[in-house]
Each structure stands twice: as structure tokens, then as C-alpha cells.
Design a protein around this nucleic acid. Structure first.
Lengths: 297, 297
DNA sequence: CTACTGTCTTTTATCGTGAAAAGACAGATT
DNA sequence: AATCTGTCTTTTCACGATAAAAGACAGTAG
């Protein structure tokens, strides 16, 4: 295996969805933008669709012959990018124990364990290093610093600085800006979710990220905006693997969000500060409680 | 060329310096810590030293036969790490014009231009991306955001937040901590430099970095400490290539530093805030003035 | 018994290679 | 005239291979 054609496979599955929903297929350039891939890939997809008898394709004529069934889709595992595979394996090890602070990380061993080439692992570790959880000894191994209490405290310290500043900037955004309508949309999604919390509490994670990213965007500072990647990554895996008391936690957070949103809309700086601080404090507590045993100092 | 043995060459040159200064050579493990390389490399060095008639080496006996001359040293160019070579080429392009915001960056082209493999360039760009000057389009090229006025403003905004917080923490450090003696050492180095500024103004850059890193370390937050890498990188190249009015600039900065240091020692929070802000404001002005023409919006 | 040396194994750094994917351009179609 | 298709070129992604460098371990010297 030299390179997985997962871009092609993922785009193919997406194109099948288009067939199910939309009916007919547009021109190749339009498909490119719809699927966010190049024409090379689009033509590959159309070629296969013809081969399996889904469509008849001749230049600009794309005639749908039949609706796709579940057998037409590529299975989930084949559409993952290599980066995602490596990240998942690594985070599983990191957050679900089996990894202690101070431990050495071996590129070769990690690559063999996951079943990928060393350079992919190397590149992953370099990208990952900005999260502050690992550190490189030049010409030698990486050192795992671990998802410790200190890490969580340092992370949340920065988060509080950045979000407080962003929230103030957000509240001061002139009326009529697109961010206000986006905030309204998020608010109603919050209410809808809260109304059906018992069944849908798992959807909170995504909503959480969208709200905080929107607020951070008001800072108009790339370092603040990029820093949210660290938080998002930590929370993403945290939500995924730490299910204890999830429903209660999410309900509380949703309620805090609604109060926070109301404060933003009021434009009252002191109220924004207060509700922002309050929410971030409880988010910090949640995070602190999720630190694995093996990292407790 | 598969891999340059520049670790070996650099350590060899360092070992020659030890010979010049110290006289005799210690044991292999001691040499390892002195040169910060492995025993494999140390033994390689000793082997060569014997071959060229510098020492007679038999087990733990290392007899110095002659003093090394300048011909014994490896030339400067051969001791550079690949990463440094790539970084220099890239930064030269970036800061000395010939690069406009929005431009595409081509890994292959860059690699050919510098004369290195593509993976080294790839890894460099990934590491470099955390500085916020470039951005990746997956499966496609990098985009240069450029060293623009916006970049400088966003950078200094964070810098001011972080350094203000660090300076406050620094001032609150209990007496007797090692940081205070380090601050004293830096203060006297500042005075010495200021006394001979006309001849030595070029040495300011290094002193500047040491002082600010010391202050940032008081934050005890890895994100704050790591962020200084971004500032250090920008200022490093800025100092190197922007020589207009350098002596005056450095004298002013030195004087501001001394006032800042005095404030830190006083422990007076308001005075720390004030002198820190004042210094960072003038550092920001200096930076803004150094933005290349091609990036002026 | 501790620290050093000789030797061997493992890991990292870097490159070249080939398939996947992107992209360029001329000619064709509406 | 604008957009689309056919074809070809270029670039990115991922791998395996190899020299440099690190590191492990047993035996040896003090």
C-alpha cells in the first residue's frame, strides 16, 4: 500500500448521497465544488458510477439509471484519512491510560503498532506537538508530558484569557453583522436540544464547539482562533470517551450557554464577563474531573 | 547524500575548542554530556582526532599531541543542521521581499530551490505553520499569509497579554528564588553593554531574548512559554536583516529594559504594569516599521 | 562496587520512488 | 463568449531503504 485513495472513496460516498437526494448530477466543475475535490477525482467517481450501472455517462449527459443501495457505499473504515487513523490510535493510548507522563515515544514502534509508515507518524507528532502534550529531544525520542492536572490548568488559564477577550469583542460587534444572526441560529438550536435533552444529549459536543468558535472569531486574532484547536481536540476526545454523568453535564452546560448568549446580546460588558467566567469555570471543573488515574500526581 | 553528519562535525569543532581551552580530555561519558551527543559520536570524534595526529588515544588514556589549528575545524557551512538551512532560505524569501501575501507555496519547488528532499521541506512547513504565517490546503499547496501589518498586530496583542501576566507573576516570585539572581546577572550584562554600546550594539538581540524568556518562564504556563518562540523567530530575522537605525533602537531598548528590571525588583505591581506596557509599545512600533513594502496593504 | 570501554542493536533523519490527487490548457459544446 | 470536456503535467502523500546517531549491555579497569 503506497497511498490510500480515501479522498476518492469519501467523495464517492458523498456523491451517492447527492444521487439519493437530488436526482440528477450537475457538470464536472460543479461536482468539484460540491464534493471539494479535483476534476481528476470527480471523473474517477463518474467512471465508477457508470461501471457499476448507477448512471449512464456520455460527456455532459449523466443519466441516472438506478438509486444507490447501501452496498454501493464504501465501508466506513476505508474512507478515513491516515491522519485521523493515527490521531485516534494515539489519543486512545493517551487518554485511556496505558501511557504515563515522562514516557518515551518511539516513532518506529508507534508506526508498526498502527500499521503505517514512519514518516506519517513523524508528521503527525510534529503537528501534534503544538498541543503541548509531547516534546521532542532532537535526534532522539519524543517525551510524553501527559494529560495531567497541570496541563489542564495551563490550558484553561489561556482559554479564559482568550475567551474573555473574544466575548468582550463579540458583545461590541455592531448590530447587523453576520455574527448576530449566527448567534440567533445557535440559540434556537440550543433551545431545541434542551427541549429533547434526554434523547439528544450526545449532540451537545458539536454545538458547544460551534458556539465557542463563533465567539473566538470575534477576536480577529489568528493566534486566539487557532488556539481553540487545542481545546477542541481535548474536548472532542474527552466527550467521546468519558461518558460518566454526560447527560447532566451537558444539560448544565446548555443552560449556562443560554445565559451566556443572553449576556452577549445585552451588550453589557460586566454581564458578559461574569457569565463567561462562570461557564468557563464549570467547564474547567468538568475537565479536571476527567483526568485519567495514571496522570494524577 | 542521504544524511549529513553535521551533528558529528559540530561536536568535533566543539571538542577542538575544549582541547584549546582545557588541555586534557575527560572520559567518554563526560565528553557526551559536555558535547551533548551520544557515545557513538564521541568515539567517532576521538577516532578522527587520533587519525589527524591531535591526540594519542588508547582506552582511557587521551594524550594531547598538539594544539588544533584553524585548518582542523570543519568549515561553518558543513555544521549547519538541515532545518536551519531550510529555515534561513525560507525566511530570507519571506522577509526580504519576493513573496507576496496570498501566494502559493510549492513543496517540490522549494525543495529543489534549496537542494534538499521534499520530506524535510514538508516537515519544516508543518513545524513552521504554528507561527501563523502560512496555512495548508489539504491535498494541495500551502498559502502564504505574509508578514503583514495585521500579522504584527495580532502577534503583539498576544505578546502583551502574555508578558503582562508573566511580569506580574515574576514580580510576585518569593525572594531567594533562582530567577532573581538570573535577573541580577542580566541587569549587569545590560549595564556592561550600554557602557560600550557603539561597539557592541549587535549583541543586544541575544540579551533581549534571554530577558524576555526569563520573564515568561515565571508564568509557569507552557503555552505562554512556547508562544515566545514565535516572537523570538520574528525578532531574530528582523534584527538580522533590518539594520536601519539599529544602534539607536538597541540603546533605547536597553534603557527601557533597565527601567523594566528595576520595576520587577521593586515588586510594585502598578510600576511593573506600566514599564512593561511602555516597553512593549515601543517594541511594537519597531516591528511595525520593519514590515516589507510588498506586504503593506 | 562503581565507572568506563568495546561491541552490537535500535531509532532517527533524509532521500528517492510511485500512486493518488490536483491542476493546466487546448479544443469542443451550448 | 462562457462554460465544459479530454488529455497531459505537476504536485502531494505515503512508503521503504540507508547512513547517522542514539542507546543497550556485557565485560573490564580502577
Amino acid at each position: 500500500m503506497v497511498k490510500q485513495n480515501n479522498v476518492y472513496k469519501q467523495a464517492y460516498n458523498k456523491a451517492l448521497k447527492l444521487l439519493e437526494d437530488g436526482g440528477n448530477l450537475p457538470s464536472e466543475p460543479e461536482l468539484c465544488t460540491a464534493l471539494t475535490v479535483s476534476r481528476t477525482t470527480v471523473r474517477g467517481i463518474l467512471g465508477r458510477m457508470q461501471d457499476v450501472g448507477l448512471i449512464e455517462w456520455d460527456k455532459r449527459r449523466k443519466l441516472v439509471l438506478r438509486q444507490p443501495g447501501s452496498a454501493d457505499y464504501f465501508p466506513d473504515g476505508e474512507t478515513d484519512t491516515l491522519t485521523d487513523i493515527i490521531e485516534r490510535s494515539f489519543m486512545r493510548k493517551l487518554l485511556l491510560g496505558g501511557a504515563e507522563a515522562g514516557m518515551q515515544i518511539n516513532e518506529l514502534e508507534l508506526a508498526r503498532e498502527i500499521g503505517v509508515g514512519t514518516s506519517s507518524v513523524r508528521e503527525f507528532l510534529i503537528r501534534f506537538s503544538r498541543f503541548g502534550l509531547i516534546e521532542k529531544r532532537p535526534n532522539s525520542h519524543w517525551v510524553l508530558k501527559g494529560f495531567t492536572r497541570d496541563f489542564a490548568l495551563e490550558l484553561t488559564e489561556i482559554r479564559e484569557m482568550f475567551e474573555l477577550r473574544s466575548a468582550r469583542a463579540f458583545a461590541a460587534t455592531p448590530a447587523g453583522s453576520a455574527v448576530w444572526s449566527e448567534l440567533d441560529r445557535l440559540e434556537s438550536e440550543h433551545r431545541a436540544l434542551l427541549g429533547d435533552i434526554a434523547a439528544r444529549y450526545r449532540e451537545f459536543s458539536e454545538l458547544d464547539e460551534r458556539l465557542h468558535r463563533l465567539i473566538h472569531s470575534a477576536s480577529r486574532n489568528r493566534f486566539i482562533i487557532d488556539f481553540y484547536d487545542v481545546i477542541a481536540m481535548i474536548f472532542h476526545y474527552h466527550y467521546q470517551w468519558n461518558k460518566a454523568g454526560e447527560e447532566v453535564r451537558n444539560r448544565t452546560a446548555l443552560e449556562e450557554h443560554l445565559i451566556y448568549i443572553a449576556a452577549l446580546k445585552s451588550g453589557d460588558a460586566a454581564r458578559v464577563d461574569d457569565t463567561c467566567r462562570r461557564h468557563l469555570r464549570s467547564a474547567r471543573e468538568t475537565l479536571l474531573q476527567s483526568i485519567p488515574e495514571s496522570y494524577r500526581d
